[in-house]
């Protein structure tokens, strides 16, 4: 069995990974009985966690196909990425074949963010399995290891930057209208639109508008999971999306690889 652990920053990142893995032929493992018994220890069995009645039970999402199982967990924040990798790795009685992390570049840039991740990684997990300093690369070996820095391993930003590029390729007219709508509606909302003042939220707003049209009444994650943003045009025009897909496959492909695809 080829076992992969992938830890992402948040649920939207998980939604994108979900769609990309399904494109590669994996399926969501929904029933506990169908899950690799070695991974049962990663399934929480109780509520409330830590006594918090409002907190959702943090169940990793499991994907599989013959001979492959992928655990994807949202760390709920960049400061918890390494701790989550360590916590999910520790109870396993089997060796993982690959470990990956997906994080946002934010304003610091991809290399700086990866440097920060490596420092925490080294302090928590030691030198073994330390991701390469090059964002997006996967270290081949008995345990493949890599980190992808959204949006494209180079630019600042986060998932929304990548999604905006996808929308530009897939629905340029709709995106233009969404941008215009946000601009026009903002003053009409007054103080209620205060959150739009941050650049990242301003990037997210038109994305949310498009999502609301495609999956009204549902969380943004659903349109990501359904693969609506990942059409042919997006793959042709957005290098970051292709890089993300190749990064995941470099971890998930059960055949050992000498080089990163």
């Amino acid at each position: 069995m080829h076992r992969v652990l992938l830890v992402v920053e948040g649920p939207h990142d998980l939604g994108l990974v979900h769609a990309l893995l399904l494109r590669r032929g994996l399926r969501v493992v929904q029933q506990l009985d169908a899950l690799d018994p070695e991974l049962h220890c990663l399934v929480p069995r109780e509520y409330p966690q830590g006594g918090d009645l409002l907190k959702r039970v943090s169940v990793p999402r499991f994907f599989g196909r013959e001979g492959v199982v992928v655990v994807v967990a949202a760390a709920e924040g960049d400061t918890r990425l390494v701790a989550t990798v360590a916590a999910l790795q520790r109870p396993l009685n089997v060796d993982l074949n690959a470990v990956g992390v997906v994080l946002d570049a934010d304003g610091a840039g991809a290399v700086a963010r990866l440097d920060g991740l490596r420092r925490k990684w080294r302090a928590t997990l030691g030198e073994a399995l330390l991701p390469l300093a090059t964002p997006g690369d996967v270290v081949p070996g008995p345990v493949r290891i890599g980190a992808f820095v959204l949006p494209d391993n180079e630019s600042p930003g986060a998932l929304e930057v990548l999604l905006r590029a996808c929308a530009t390729a897939e629905w340029p007219g709709a995106l233009e209208l969404a941008d215009a709508f946000v601009l026009a509606a903002e003053p009409l909302l007054g103080a209620s639109a205060a959150e739009l003042q941050t650049p990242s939220k301003r990037t997210k707003a038109p994305i949310s508008v498009l999502h609301a049209l495609m999956r009204p009444g549902k969380a943004v994650q659903t349109s990501l999971e359904d693969g609506l943003w990942l059409g042919r045009a997006a793959f042709d025009a957005v290098p970051g999306l292709t890089a993300m897909d190749q990064f995941l496959w470099a971890l998930v492909d059960p055949q050992p690889r000498a080089t990163v695809p």
Binding site: C41, L42, P44, R45, E46, Y47, Q49, G50, G51, V57, S58, A73, R80, A83, T84, A86, A87, L88, R90, P91
Partner: peptide, 18 residues
């Protein structure tokens, strides 16, 4: 598997691991 206090707390309270 060895857990110090913080590692055990994180696994229990944050991830709900047994």
């Amino acid at each position: 598997a060895r857990y110090d206090h913080e590692e055990a707390r994180f696994s229990r309270a944050e991830l709900g691991l047994e």
